[in-house]
């Protein structure tokens, strides 16, 4: 595939623009998450801007290099983690931003699933490089969690691409732009709807695993292994991991919206042009907010942490089973 000069310019501007967008929105949504979780527990909670204050505090704290750490790898891990997370944003469609996905045509859903692995892998490597026993246990658990949720995630991706291919043969059905512009809910029968609901449910369960939040945060498990891979990270290094986590929240939420809720508001209320894009973008931000509340905040408040063996049982046994059932329903429906 030929890389055009327009694509290169778009990539430069897009990387810078989307990195700021991803970081800002990610931190803001983290603030909402903390505030709403606090209210659910009858607490006042921190202000919504607390994650911004946290990051500015991390940046002025000492960046300690633990003794016996593999320094270059220990320091490189947070940089690579944030950078790889930013690249994911360039393959995602953001509602109301018509120039997204910026790298549409240069990567698809399968690539995205693989790219989402890189930040987690880099965190594991950084944890191992820190020479902390807690970090090595956390890294091991993170790896198992990742291997566990990849299976149902792959089933969800394949099921949607398969159905799109059946409906639109010959099209690039793995492309995120194509998936976003061809919602499946109105194109399938009753069994297909059940299938889509099962696939959506699977992705809702996979999302906390991807974001290492409750109940699938055994790799961090603060009271037990003191944040796992991040135990020995501090100051600006920890700040970069924090930013990468914020960007990942946006990326994973946007992926769910692209697969299951790719609807714009402007056609419904009859607005077009720039005003329509603004309305769609605001609608997208609302959808993202609801997805974050549903997949991160609610489980975090409502349920307890699973053990590592239970994480694997849940993902490989229950969630994959539900996803495969959804695949079967969507094939016949």
């Amino acid at each position: 595939m030929i890389i055009t000069s327009g694509a290169i310019l778009g990539a430069v501007v897009g990387t810078i623009g989307l990195s700021f967008f991803g970081i800002f929105c990610g931190l803001l949504y983290k603030g909402f998450d903390r505030k709403i979780a606090a209210h659910m527990q009858s607490r006042t909670g921190p202000p919504v801007i607390q994650p911004f204050l946290d990051v500015s505090k991390f940046m002025i704290k000492d960046t300690v290099q633990p003794e016996r750490a593999l320094t270059w790898l220990y320091n490189a891990a947070p940089i690579i983690c944030l950078a790889s997370m930013i690249t994911v944003l360039l393959y995602l469609p953001f509602g109301g931003l018509p120039f997204t996905p910026i790298l549409s045509g240069y990567g698809d859903l399968i690539l995205l699933v693989y790219l989402l692995i890189i930040p987690a892998l880099v965190m594991i490597v950084g944890g191992f490089a820190s020479s902390s026993p807690f970090a090595t246990v956390g890294g091991q658990r993170k790896m198992i969690t990742m291997m566990s949720y990849e299976f149902p995630l792959a089933v969800v991706a394949i099921a949607i691409a398969w159905k799109l291919n059946a409906l639109y043969p010959g099209e690039s059905v793995f492309g995120l732009a194509f998936i976003y512009s061809h919602p499946l809910w109105g194109s399938v029968g009753p069994l297909g709807i059940i299938g889509l609901l099962l696939l959506l449910f699977s992705l809702v369960i996979v999302t906390p695993g991807q974001l290492a939040t409750v109940p699938f945060d055994v790799c961090e498990a603060g009271p037990e292994i003191a944040e796992g891979v991040a135990t020995e990270y501090s100051g600006r290094n920890f700040g970069l991991f924090y930013l990468a986590d914020a960007v990942k929240t946006i990326a994973v939420g946007t992926l769910m919206i692209a697969l299951f809720f790719p609807y714009d508001l402007s056609p419904l209320i009859g607005i077009s042009g720039p005003a329509g894009h603004i309305v769609n973008f605001l609608f997208f931000l609302l959808k993202l907010f609801l997805v974050v509340i549903l997949t991160v905040t609610l489980p975090r408040v409502a349920v307890a942490r699973l053990k590592i063996s239970q994480v694997t049982t849940t993902y490989w046994g229950i969630v994959t089973g539900i996803a495969v059932l959804g695949l079967i329903f969507i094939v016949i429906g």
Binding site: T87, L103, Y106, L109, L111, F174
Partner: peptide
Amino acid sequence: PYWNPLIW
């Protein structure tokens, strides 16, 4: 599926 490693 498709992807371009150079631009990534």
